[in-house]
């Protein structure tokens, strides 16, 4: 029964207890003095502190609002799955506008609609500001097909994507950064603009995608994701 079990402790207290608080011992000498198990705990304790410090620096004190976004959008908005959008470095105005569009129903998604509806405007604006400040890392998990990228590049030029999205497709104001975005996400969104499921009041995106075939959309997504 419970009475026989050792006194239960939290993981944090256990680490502190097992290491005797000797957090300075995380050295090679520490391994000899205290054994590999103890050294592992000491190093782990240090890493926990380092992770906490880094997360606090980027997202404020725990518990952080932006933690809600990590699973789908990746750490600091750098999703590694091509299927979910990368938020890091997106223009603040664009992120704000999209979150408001989920609230108003102009844009609809079974995950994002209730998520946006569950937050106050202040929270939504806070997240928009947060992700716009995160540094976008290269889309390293995407492996492009060079022939498709070449066709996609020609399509991007012919359709003048740079007019709104910038010369390097880096985005500006309400126009999203495209360069380095997830491949499958791009493909899905372009297809949705074409079918009308995703709306764009300005009419710009529907006009661009109207003439694109499924192959064109795929090529374009290949090019953009590889930037």
């Amino acid at each position: 029964m419970m009475s026989k079990a050792p006194k239960p402790r939290s993981l944090g207290k256990r680490i502190l207890l097992l290491t005797g608080g000797m957090l300075l011992a995380a050295t090679a000498a520490g391994a000899i003095l205290y054994g590999p198990e103890l050294l592992g705990l000491v190093q782990l304790g240090k890493q926990f502190d380092a992770i906490t410090a880094e997360n606090t620096r980027l997202g404020g004190p725990w518990p952080r609002a932006s933690d809600a976004c990590v699973s789908c959008h990746g750490v600091n908005g750098n999703a590694q799955a091509q299927t979910y959008p990368r938020l890091a470095g997106q223009p603040e105005a664009y992120l704000k506008k999209q979150l408001q569009a989920f609230v108003s129903g102009e844009r609809s998604d079974p995950t994002m609609t209730p998520m946006a509806l569950s937050m106050s405007e202040r929270e939504l604006n806070g997240l928009s500001a947060h992700f716009s400040k995160m540094q976008l890392l290269p889309n390293a998990t995407f492996h492009a097909d060079p022939a498709r990228v070449k066709r996609g590049e020609a399509l991007a030029k012919a359709n003048n994507c740079a007019a709104c999205h910038g010369q390097q497709l880096e985005g500006k104001d309400v126009y999203p950064r495209l360069a380095g975005q997830g491949y499958s996400y791009l493909q899905t969104q372009l297809t949705r603009f074409k079918s009308g499921v995703r709306r764009d009041a300005s009419g710009a995106m529907p006009a661009v995608v109207a003439a694109l075939s499924a192959q064109d959309i795929d090529d374009l997504a290949q090019f953009i994701a590889s930037r």
């Binding site: 256990r14 680490i15 190093q43």
Partner: peptide, 10 residues
């Protein structure tokens, strides 16, 4: 438990 390079078994 893994955290960055650190590993411990508890």
């Amino acid at each position: 438990i893994l955290a960055k390079g650190a590993r411990a078994a508890v």
